[in-house]
Simulated scan of single mutants.
Amino acid sequence: MNLKELTKAEEEIMQVLWQQGSAFVKDVLEVLPEPKPAYNTVSTIIRILETKGFVKHIAYGKTHQYYPAVTKEDYRAFVTNKLRAGYFDNSARAMMSFFMENEQIDLKEADEILKMIEEMKKRQ
């Protein structure tokens, strides 16, 4: 899968589609925060997302119902890998260290991470 990074507007619309599963343009528009973009703007962004391979549609006459062609998990993995490669020399340790040093991870989360690491060790 050859993913590309989404713009802020594209990602906002993808979040709606991931949450709803499928939607018409008017449905997406309803849940977007104020100030709401124009209907044509949302329609154009969705068509761009379709061109990029993120969205597919089912046609009902002239109306289209859109649904994600890329899972949120796949996009999250893509963005995380790009972040790790671009800012942390491809090191998960460096990335985790950054979050810990900048207090982005509290003690409860750190304990949960340690439990996850212990489970990972058991599986190997």
Rank of each mutant, 00 (worst) to 15 (best):
Leu3Glu: 11
Leu3Arg: 13
Lys4Cys: 09
Thr7Arg: 13
Thr7Ala: 10
Thr7Asn: 07
Met14Gly: 06
Gln15Met: 11
Gln15Gly: 03
Val16Leu: 07
Gly21Met: 11
Ser22Trp: 11
Phe24Glu: 13
Val25His: 02
Lys26Gln: 14
Asp27Ser: 09
Val28Cys: 12
Val28Pro: 07
Leu32Thr: 07
Pro33Met: 07
Glu34His: 15
Pro35Gly: 03
Pro35Asn: 07
Pro35Asp: 08
Lys36Tyr: 10
Lys36Gly: 08
Pro37Gln: 07
Pro37His: 04
Ala38Met: 06
Ala38Asp: 13
Asn40Gly: 01
Val42Trp: 04
Val42Thr: 10
Thr44Trp: 07
Arg47Pro: 00
Leu49Arg: 05
Thr51His: 06
Gly53Gln: 01
Phe54His: 00
Phe54Cys: 01
His57Trp: 11
Lys62Trp: 03
Lys62Met: 04
Lys62His: 06
Thr63Ala: 15
Thr63Met: 09
His64Met: 08
His64Lys: 15
His64Ser: 08
Gln65Pro: 00
Gln65Trp: 02
Tyr66Arg: 07
Tyr67Thr: 09
Thr71Phe: 06
Thr71Met: 05
Tyr75Ala: 01
Tyr75His: 06
Arg76Ala: 12
Ala77Arg: 12
Phe78Met: 03
Val79Gly: 00
Thr80Arg: 11
Asn81Cys: 01
Lys82Ser: 11
Lys82Cys: 01
Lys82Thr: 09
Ala85Ile: 03
Tyr87Phe: 15
Phe88Gly: 01
Phe88Tyr: 14
Asn90Ala: 14
Ser91His: 04
Ser91Arg: 03
Met96His: 07
Phe99Glu: 04
Phe99Gln: 08
Phe99Met: 13
Met100Val: 12
Met100Cys: 05
Met100Ile: 14
Glu101Gly: 11
Glu103Gln: 13
Gln104Arg: 13
Ile105Gln: 01
Asp106Thr: 02
Asp106Val: 02
Asp106Trp: 06
Lys108Thr: 10
Glu109Phe: 02
Ile113Asp: 03
Met116Leu: 12
Ile117Tyr: 11
Ile117Asp: 00
Met120Ala: 15
Lys122His: 10
Lys122Arg: 14
